[in-house]
């Protein structure tokens, strides 16, 4: 009969090997993170810049804001979560706002940005940031010209008290659009189209009351740092 090996001959090598690998892994991951983090952040900022400036023609700079306890304030580096982007032209005039939205689509979350014009209280453009929708069907929400036309003057007015949207933005079946706050779905991609409508509806409800309550903050932020 074999006598079991003493503890230090079985357990110690295991602990030593696992400890050593944890140490080596830790060092490798931290070094890789430190080396790539600035570049990743720059890529993120460039991607946001590209989307914001494409949605707001004429805008050349942007300022970021966050919503904390129903009040907008300028975003700091430490702020996590969704941001509102305000775009300004070279004279520091506010050209419009770009807001984030997200909702569940056919295969995963559809996340998007849309531009909002304070004067007309309407959505003026939309851009899909990320989606896993079916190629050739659902993914047309980002490219179908007729569908994108929905977002050129989409009514997003608030009610008289300014607390909530006057009409909830809603996606209707293809060819049934009648109101300025309705989105005409893509035929064959109703679920993906609804996700876009839902994302914008939720986002307008969340952000717009604060936006309209603090217009002067947004308009005057161009030169602040």
């Amino acid at each position: 009969m074999n006598t079991p090996l003493p503890l230090e001959q079985t357990s110690l090598p295991m602990i030593r090997a696992l400890g050593l690998i944890a140490l080596v892994s830790g060092v490798l991951i931290v070094v890789a993170y430190e080396q790539t983090a600035p570049r990743i952040e720059r890529n993120r900022q460039q991607a946001i810049d590209a989307a914001v400036f494409a949605l707001l023609p004429g805008a050349q700079t942007r300022r970021d804001f966050v919503l904390a306890t129903n009040t907008l304030r300028a975003a700091t580096v430490a702020d996590q979560g969704d941001r509102l982007y305000a775009g300004y032209d070279s004279d520091g005039q506010l050209r419009g706002l770009v807001l984030p939205g997200a909702a569940a689509g056919y295969q995963g979350v559809v996340s998007l940005l849309y531009s909002y014009d304070i004067a007309c209280a309407c959505v003026t453009g939309m851009r899909v940031l990320q989606s896993l929708e079916t190629p050739g069907l659902g993914d047309r929400i980002g490219s179908d010209a007729a569908f994108l036309q929905n977002f050129h003057q989409l009514d997003a007015r608030l009610d008289a008290a300014g607390n909530r949207p006057a009409h909830a933005i809603v996606t209707v079946r293809h060819g049934r659009r009648q109101q300025a706050w309705e989105i005409d779905a893509i035929a064959g991609a109703t679920i993906s189209s609804r996700a876009v409508g839902k994302a914008i509806a939720r986002s307008t409800e969340h952000w717009l009351p604060a936006v309209h309550a603090q217009i002067s903050l947004l308009q005057g932020a161009a030169h602040e740092h």
């Binding site: 295991m14 696992l18 050593l20 690998i21 080596v24 890789a32 790539t36 990743i40």
Partner: peptide, 25 residues
Amino acid sequence: VIPRAVRIACYIAIIATFVTVVDYL
């Protein structure tokens, strides 16, 4: 250095490390 009994755990930890690095890259 890696004992047979914990080799899979060791390999997975090593592989996960390089995947994290490539994810950042």
